[in-house]
């Protein structure tokens, strides 16, 4: 193995990985032969030693040697002579195995492994996609939340403004109403005053006429009378009566 120039050349030439593999195999196989080599050498050494010590036991000793070293008797030893029939059986068994595995087992396993690999890739991709979508949705949600907050603030502001408007309008309206009521009240009061003043004047004129008749025993003509009363009343200041309500 160590002398195999092909592998040595392959190791030296190129492809360090392949070369190293070949070297490792060669070294391993070479080391593997050391053990049996020492063992066989040891057995032979002992046999020679034993035979020289006890020549009379030569047959016995060499029979043990034959057991231990079947390789020593290559001629005819069944352990190292290939059996053609068994080789044929081996080929049959191997080829049947190869056929069945190649036809039925390996493709299915390969297919299933590929499928599983694809499934893993796909699920990783799907997970990525889902996460991306989730991120997008989260962003959108945040955006919407922000908008909602802004809108809410706007609504509050608008509502406040509306409320203020309404209040102002209500106050205005109330004031107008109050003023109208007051105006009405004032007009009513003036009308009442005017009416009262009129009645008063009429009653006073009548009373005056009556009093004058009693005093003078003379009945004035209606015209004189009225002229006189009117003149007298004209001198009276009625402003004092209505002035209080006006102010």
């Amino acid at each position: 193995m160590a002398l195999d120039p092909g592998i040595l050349a392959a190791a030296a030439a190129d492809v360090p990985k392949k070369g190293l593999q070949a070297i490792a195999l060669g070294v391993g196989a070479g080391l593997g032969t050391i053990g049996p080599g020492i063992g066989v050498g040891f057995i032979f050494g002992k046999v020679i030693e034993s035979v020289t010590r006890q020549p009379e036991m030569r047959d016995e000793i060499t029979s043990i040697q034959c057991l231990s070293v079947p390789f020593a008797k290559s001629s005819g030893n069944f352990l190292v002579s290939p059996n053609l029939g068994l080789m044929v059986w081996t080929l049959i068994a191997f080829l049947i195995t190869l056929y069945v595995l190649k036809r039925l087992a390996f493709p299915r396993i390969a297919e299933a492994l590929d499928k599983r690999q694809r499934a893993i890739d796909e699920s990783i991709e799907a997970a990525d996609r889902t996460r991306r979508e989730a991120d997008e949705i989260l962003d959108e949600y945040r955006e919407r939340l922000k908008q909602a907050r802004v809108q809410a603030e706007e609504i509050v502001v608008r509502a406040r403004k509306a409320a203020e408007n309404t209040e102002r309008e209500t106050v205005e309206h109330a004031r107008q109403t109050r003023e109208e009521i007051l105006e009405q009240a004032r007009r009513d009061a003036e009308a009442s005053i005017q009416q009262a003043v009129g009645e008063l004047r009429r009653d006073m004129a009548d009373l005056t006429v009556l009093a004058t008749e009693k005093v003078t025993r003379k009945a004035l003509t209606d015209d004189d009378q009225r002229r006189l009363v009117e003149e007298a009343l004209g001198e009276l200041d009625f402003d004092a009566l209505s002035g209080g309500s006006r102010n």
């Binding site: 191997f94 195995t97 069945v100 595995l101 039925l104 087992a105 390996f106 299915r108 396993i109 299933a112």
Partner: peptide
């Protein structure tokens, strides 16, 4: 050996 190899691999292939 052949039977065991075939049986094992077929069993696995069917289980896949």
């Amino acid at each position: 050996a052949a039977t065991l190899t075939i049986a094992t691999m077929l069993y696995i292939a069917n289980r896949m």
